[in-house]
Design a protein around this nucleic acid. Structure first.
Lengths: 150, 150
DNA sequence: TATTGTTATACTCTATAACTATA
DNA sequence: TATAGTTATAGAGTATAACAATA
């Protein structure tokens, strides 16, 4: 009977453990990023929406949901938050009046830049125990298994 | 403007992306395992409780929470479910009448064995794109960053 | 008829505080 | 007083169905 309080590491990992380790590390990554973004009134989901909108320049909400693997109804709430904070605008699509193109405001771009820094710092803290090449290896392996959204 | 429907892979990953990839892969792992366990009326959290209880043989609920990184109040609900399903028992601790030792029933052991198989299959499916050595590398890297529970 | 955005709803997960019985 | 278990509750995340406007 050793280390029952376990304050230093993972002791009992179920067989079939890689999924468990992924879920645990992923949960930690989200919690850490949420904490870092808290002063800006944002959460990690807002950051991904902001980032995807900037990268594509005027995505519809349906496209946002597809790219990020988020349900369209959830996208509505996230864009609501960002619009209320003045970080994005919903603009009319001249080609289809059903869709609303999400674009970043100037303030949205500056906030995104700051959020990127915070995300990079959070990543560095999480990956602290790993060397540079090990981090690259991990990212490469994760990209191959993370698969499509959903 | 390429692949806006993105049915084949992750296209727009925010900078500071390893955490994002971890969260995405971890979410997928949990969803897949939950789906596999559904016919048994269990979810992934039940499986970890079952597995940890078997490995240590008679853990208190407080210890379970510590080992798994789950809040004690959540442990109560999980053990309630498992006890109702006849998979675990709450036994009196002869040394401290406050604590209740969680142990597996015979049926709990057989169910755990089956759940282990399903978890291993789920892991294999998730890690399908990776070779054996790559899987080992991934697991090793994850163990170093997953850190203590919580 | 199909699709976009939207609302409403529900269930899981997580986290916190407070209560009880024991220590 | 401190701890183990428990209860209640609230928030975030996720998923589904249905509806209005538009295609």
């Amino acid at each position: 009977m050793e280390c029952t309080s376990s304050p230093g590491g993972i002791i009992d990992v179920p067989a079939g453990s890689v999924g468990y380790l992924l879920a645990r590390a992923g949960g930690r990554a989200i919690r850490d990023l949420n904490r870092a973004l808290e002063p800006y009134g944002l959460r990690s989901r807002h950051y991904t929406v902001l980032s995807a909108s900037a990268a594509r320049g005027g995505l519809s909400q349906r496209q946002l949901g597809g790219v990020l693997g988020v349900d369209p109804s959830a996208v509505v709430a996230l864009v609501d938050d960002l619009e209320r904070a003045g970080l994005v605008k919903r603009e009319a699509d001249p080609e289809d009046r059903r869709t609303r193109l999400v674009t970043l405001t100037e303030r949205g771009h500056t906030t995104l830049a700051r959020a990127r820094e915070l995300a990079a710092e959070t990543d560095s803290a999480l990956l602290g125990p790993l060397s540079g090449t090990e981090r690259a290896t991990l990212e490469s392996l994760l990209r191959r298994i993370a698969g499509p959204p959903g």
